[in-house]
Design a protein around this nucleic acid. Structure first.
Lengths: 353, 353
DNA sequence: ATTGACAATGCAACCGATTGCACTTATAAT
DNA sequence: ATTATAAGTGCAATCGGTTGCATTGTCAAT
């Protein structure tokens, strides 16, 4: 590969002149510019990104780490969509993404630290939604800018940048939708109780129930760990509640909702006539289930995009102060939710609407 | 960030000694190693990856470019699964992925060239399945190792490394499955006729039909450009063929098969009783359609993994000779295919099995 | 005619590691 | 005791760019 000195020799100028031609920022006479450019063209020269990075201390690269061992990560639209948004924003600013695999949550953090300490990226998008204060604090010490996708621990809310779906409002909209249909026995099937998003959604679920004066039955709450069997087994567990079994299920992702659908179908319960089911994410899967899944659209691509935009303004020094964004989610009404069956609430069927 | 000189000063050794401690390859007395390590620990030092790359001319990075503007790319399991496999292999060899967005096919090539010429990656996985000889030749000139996911132009078969699904056998298995069910009027809904994979599959489709002595009707061949509406409109077009309409559809991905399913459902044709439908990819979507989709599993994760493994052996000089792999695909029998309806072949229903 | 401003270019140090070579010291072989 | 060998470390050049500073040349203003 040709270097800047080769080009300089061929164009009979000093290497620094070649550098200036390619930087575009300095004043260069039209004549030498032409000469340099044609010499470069001739040699197939392009500035070496590594050398440039070393000198300028900028890699034009945003890091991210993906736990490649979690297969579900790649099935649900979650990761691909975030990635798409990140790529879009990065591309617009002439950045690239550097992505590392990881074997799990703790490894994820060490990979992030490794990228930071070895200066492989100007900034990092952190996707772990299991962060605790200590971890965040230690990340902060490394002072490589990062933005979190998801919610930070309460203590760090104003110390770091983050962007997340407005899970609270999203969940409220979902639960309220079910309540409006007359449901009173509503199950919440979360992902992983260690996951902050899961906890946040659960909180919103409980708040919304309470706000409508509905009781919260611990048996209506379960965790499906984001996969299809998880939703399936949640139903298995709850069916034993007899009359007290939920008339509606809200799942923290579509995949678990699909599992719920499958379990219900096997039990011979009709959706939405007897039981309503809602998912989350509006994954493309949700359009094609039977019945098509009512869900809440989470703009993951937007979130990913926003995250790297934030990061890029931070690394280009336009604005170093931490900021955060809550992206709006909206209901996608399809065919898996309907009015509560009258048999489920014999004493007040008149009131349903 | 602390540099190697800071550590050297603190440990009272020469920077080269620090370097040797971290390289692990040189002989260092236990005493100084301890001293250096603790100084490094103390300063939070870790070798700067950029500087190291500059000197060693190795980035420990594999490049890839993703056309982020094609949303379908991120919906189908194709891209996420390849990515997962790539990450897995990269991780095992302590490599990372550097990924660039792109606005389309031609931009994809220029991004690849840019990564190569700026030495941002040791090797590149090229995913474009529309390569022509000229493009490949020009890529070859840049002599950064690359491996192609998908089929190379015939002329380059032995010049470059590539790994692909064995589309030919996969398609043959699929079509043969339909033929075995008694179908004679089988539609092929491909992706994009410019796509080599699409052409390869179409070839296998035609060969298999011919091998069974079946006629090939040009009207049974259409392109759905990999998305759901594409499958849908293919059916719209073919339904006008009346008695000559296909009794079975084979789609080059599951998403189009879903579109086919939807169109058929709207037309009131029962699947699989009246019409059979097959998809390709065994995406997680295919498990959850109604009826569940018979499909052919394409081991994308394996392909991605193999691609970067190949690349890594090449960049670490273990083996520079081009090689190629064809990954096996297998049928996933579910509920969208069945024996041809007797009304569709009134004159030979006795022969169907 | 003199001065000042600025455009155009060269010079050389620097970014943070790596590594071939040389040197010293300790250990083993003769 | 002498020599060969290897271990342990330092020196300095190098990877391929960038950039502050110095220098020269040009042109306009006074």
């Amino acid at each position: 590969m040709a270097t800047i000195r080769d080009v300089a020799r061929k164009a009979k100028v000093h290497p620094s002149t070649v550098s200036r031609v390619f930087s575009g920022k300095a004043s260069i006479s039209e004549a030498t510019r032409k000469r340099v450019l044609s010499a470069a063209e001739n040699l197939g020269f392009q500035p070496n990104a590594i050398a440039r990075s070393l000198k300028t201390q900028k890699t034009h690269t945003i890091g991210m780490v993906v736990p490649h061992v979690f297969e579900g990560f790649f099935d649900d639209s979650f990761f691909p969509q975030i990635m798409r948004g990140m790529l879009e924003a990065a591309y617009q600013h002439h950045f690239r993404l550097i992505v590392s695999g990881s074997q799990g949550y703790t490894d994820e953090i060490s990979q992030i630290k490794d990228i930071m300490r070895s200066s492989q990226a100007d900034g990092i998008v952190v996707m772990s939604s299991r962060l605790d204060v200590d971890t965040v604090d230690r990340l902060l010490e490394l002072d490589t800018p990062f933005v979190l996708i998801g919610h930070p621990p309460k203590e760090n809310h104003h110390q770091i940048s983050w962007v997340d779906a407005d899970n609270q409002i999203a969940t409220r909209k979902a639960i309220q939708h079910l309540i409006n249909l007359g449901h009173k026995q509503i199950a919440y099937v979360g992902g992983d109780p260690k996951n902050l998003t899961t906890r946040e959604r659960q909180q919103a679920y409980e708040d919304t129930m309470r706000a409508s004066g509905l009781a919260i039955e611990p048996n209506w709450i379960d965790y499906g760990y984001f996969d299809e069997p998880g939703g399936y087994t949640a139903v298995q567990r709850m069916k034993t509640l007899g009359n007290n079994a939920p008339t509606a299920y809200y799942a923290a992702n579509d995949l678990m909702a699909v599992g719920i659908l499958r379990a219900l179908t096997e039990l011979g319960r009709c959706v939405p006539e007897e039981v309503s089911v809602m998912g989350t994410n509006n994954s493309y899967l949700s359009q094609h289930t039977t019945p098509a899944l009512t869900t809440v659209d989470v703009p993951y691509a937007e979130i990913g995009k926003k995250a790297v935009e934030l990061l890029i303004t931070q690394v280009t020094n336009l604005n170093k102060t931490p900021s955060s964004y809550l992206e709006d989610c909206h209901l996608v009404l399809r065919s898996s939710t309907g009015p509560v069956a009258s048999s489920n609430q014999p004493d007040q069927s008149g009131r349903s609407h």
